[in-house]
């Protein structure tokens, strides 16, 4: 197996959580969170929206690792999210509310906005300036940004980070996990092509 083919299991394959309209939103949003450029790959090229869609099926996103008994009370933000929704429900609700806001303000859905318009709306969501009904907009933004980064940087076995392009950009070697000798080096940058978990043992 040579560079560029390593571990692209499921790359670019959608899951079954988001609807076509929600997928369009994710593509337009993630594209601005991590844009593509000559400097390095963006979220779309590396399959992040598809990763997020598939990740919504995990126990993690379905709230199975969260304590979810009520009552659901107002509490200081430092005590964490106290609402009844799961991560995948928060993303769905945030997408719906964001699109609704864009319809109201621009007469168009989020993916139909110009790039500067999109970024303006995104900053408002990030700063919590837009009121969503079921979830604070800033919390939605933080959670979607976290999912986007996770998809961008995860091992290609999870279906994103095609070509390990994000790892190449930052110089992360991925799987090797054996630096007994390299840890003593002070001058030379650690130099190794990145490797996916899928290449282990080869």
């Amino acid at each position: 197996m040579h560079d560029g083919q390593a571990g692209q299991t499921g790359a670019g394959v959608w899951g079954s959580f988001f609807s076509p309209i929600e997928r369009d939103f994710l593509i337009a949003f993630c594209d601005r969170l991590i844009p593509d450029s000559a400097f390095g790959p963006g979220a779309i090229r590396t399959g992040v929206p598809q990763f997020i869609d598939r990740h919504m099926a995990s126990p993690y996103a379905r709230g199975e690792l969260w304590y979810r008994q009520g009552p659901f009370c107002e509490a200081p933000r430092l005590l964490g999210y106290q609402g009844p929704l799961t991560l995948c429900e928060i993303l769905r609700e945030g997408i719906r509310a964001s699109d609704e806001y864009c319809q109201r303000s621009f007469g168009r859905r989020f993916p139909e906005l110009s790039l500067p318009e999109r970024e303006t709306v995104m900053r408002q969501i990030e700063d919590g300036e837009i009121e969503f009904a079921a979830i604070e907009s800033s919390r939605f933004f933080a959670m979607l940004l976290a999912e986007t980064r996770i998809g961008y940087f995860s091992d290609p076995v999870h279906g994103s980070n095609a070509d390990m392009a994000s790892w190449r950009m930052i110089g992360y070697p991925g799987y090797p996990a054996d630096y007994r000798e390299a840890i003593r080096e002070r001058i030379e940058p650690y130099d190794s092509r990145p490797r996916s978990v899928s290449e282990a043992g080869r």
Binding site: R32, L33, I34, P35, S37, F39, G40, G42, E119, M122, L145, T148, M169, I170, G171, Y172
Partner: peptide, 13 residues
């Protein structure tokens, strides 16, 4: 986030 974030993580990691 955005292009500036990408350049910063590549610069600092």
């Amino acid at each position: 986030w955005g292009e500036g974030w990408k350049e910063a993580v590549a610069r600092h990691f």
